[in-house]
């Protein structure tokens, strides 16, 4: 059964580096698994931990946050803020019984199409290993 599980992964990619890196993977026709679906944000610093929690609640099995390399942030230090927030979030997830490995932060520059594909492959395999997310499922209502 485990081999057949296809995880649902949400990727928050910053406009300047990781999203551009993902585009480059496309232009270079580098293949990777289709499990990750990207959301473009201006900066990884825009990724509120609520987004990640909400993605898991809505049924995502894993979340990837992609930012510029340390020091390369288009907004100087948004990626550092994201890194700290995700570190705290992982502790919270662990506390609530959710495997923190479901959330991963990565640095992919605009010229790293190959790296982007590799990261997606890794994340997909890691989440596949962890199995489906089964906690706190609920729908958004407002």
């Amino acid at each position: 059964m485990k081999e057949k599980f296809e995880p649902n992964i949400i990727g928050f990619l910053c406009n300047w580096c990781s999203y551009a890196g993902a585009d480059l993977a496309g232009t270079s026709r580098i293949q990777y698994p289709p499990n990750l679906k990207a959301i473009r944000v201006m900066c990884s610093g825009r990724v509120n931990p609520i987004f990640v929690i909400n993605a898991l609640q809505q049924g995502a099995d894993g979340v990837l946050i992609g930012g510029c390399h340390p020091g390369d942030c288009h907004y100087e230090r948004g990626n550092y803020l994201a890194r700290r927030r995700m570190a705290v979030l992982k502790k919270l997830l662990e506390y609530t019984g959710i495997d923190p490995r479901r959330v991963r932060m990565t640095w992919v520059s605009a010229s790293e199409g190959k790296k982007f594909a590799e990261v997606v492959k890794e994340v997909t395999e890691d989440i596949r290993e962890l199995g489906p997310m089964q906690h706190f499922r609920r729908e958004n209502k407002w």
Partner: peptide, 22 residues
């Protein structure tokens, strides 16, 4: 410049990012 770092930190959710709203 619209990075949204502030919006992600606002404890009351008072800050909205135009076009990248919650």
């Amino acid at each position: 410049k619209g990075c949204g770092s502030c919006a992600s930190a606002c404890p009351t959710g008072a800050i909205t990012m135009r076009h990248y709203d919650v």
